[in-house]
């Protein structure tokens, strides 16, 4: 059993454990921190798969950006010491029921599906040259158009967020 294999199972355990803690924790700031652990562990999985760039994006954008954003909003809307009440029973049943049934169904499908054991094609290493050439390429295997779309989407989301969140001057809201 190589080191990589061990590391994979460690990361998987972290992912599953902290995912569960994220959605069950009654303190929201802790939930955010648990989410951070999940995301970092995911980045670890990407490193194991030798997708370093993907892992870096995961760390900087998700772990660094989105979680910080979430923590900001938590601080804007909650007291640190705020403790959630326990979820209602019906919702608990609904959520767990769907999750359990869906997990069984999916895992059963995964286990019974005949995945090909050996793939013979030569791998394309995810080096920065390849990624950069393809991300901005316009020929076959070029992703310039989705790249531009994403940039426009991000711009729109930014403007939208500002418009939505800014104070409504005409109505004199209290906050």
């Amino acid at each position: 059993m190589s080191f990589n294999v061990v590391m994979f199972y460690v990361f998987s355990a972290i992912i599953l454990l902290f995912s569960l803690l994220t959605i069950t924790s009654r303190r929201i700031l802790r939930a955010a921190v648990y989410l951070l652990f999940v995301l970092i562990a995911t980045a670890g999985v990407y490193f194991l798969l030798e997708y370093q760039f993907m892992a870096a994006v995961q760390l900087t954008l998700y772990a660094g950006g989105i979680v910080v954003l979430i923590i900001f909003s938590i601080l804007l809307t909650h007291h640190i010491s705020h403790l959630f009440e326990k979820p209602e029973l019906t919702k608990l049943l609904m959520g767990t029921g769907v999750a359990v049934v869906g997990s069984f169904l999916t895992i059963y499908t995964i286990l019974t599906y005949p995945f090909p054991e050996i793939v013979t094609t030569t791998p394309l290493p995810a080096t920065m040259e390849n990624i950069g050439a393809q991300l901005l390429g316009v020929e076959k295997n070029g992703y310039a158009l989705p790249f531009e779309l994403i940039s426009i989407l991000l711009l729109a989301a930014m403007i939208g967020a500002i418009v939505i969140a800014k104070k409504d001057k005409s109505k004199n809201s209290e906050i």
């Binding site: 992912i15 599953l16 995912s19 569960l20 994220t22 959605i23 999940v38 979820p87 919702k91 608990l92 609904m94 959520g95 767990t96 769907v98 999750a99 359990v100 869906g102 997990s103 999916t106 895992i107 995964i110």
Partner: peptide
């Protein structure tokens, strides 16, 4: 898969 359905459960609960 487990992570996905944990997320779904959290969304609903």
């Amino acid at each position: 898969t487990l992570m996905f359905f944990i997320g779904v459960a959290g969304f609903i609960m």
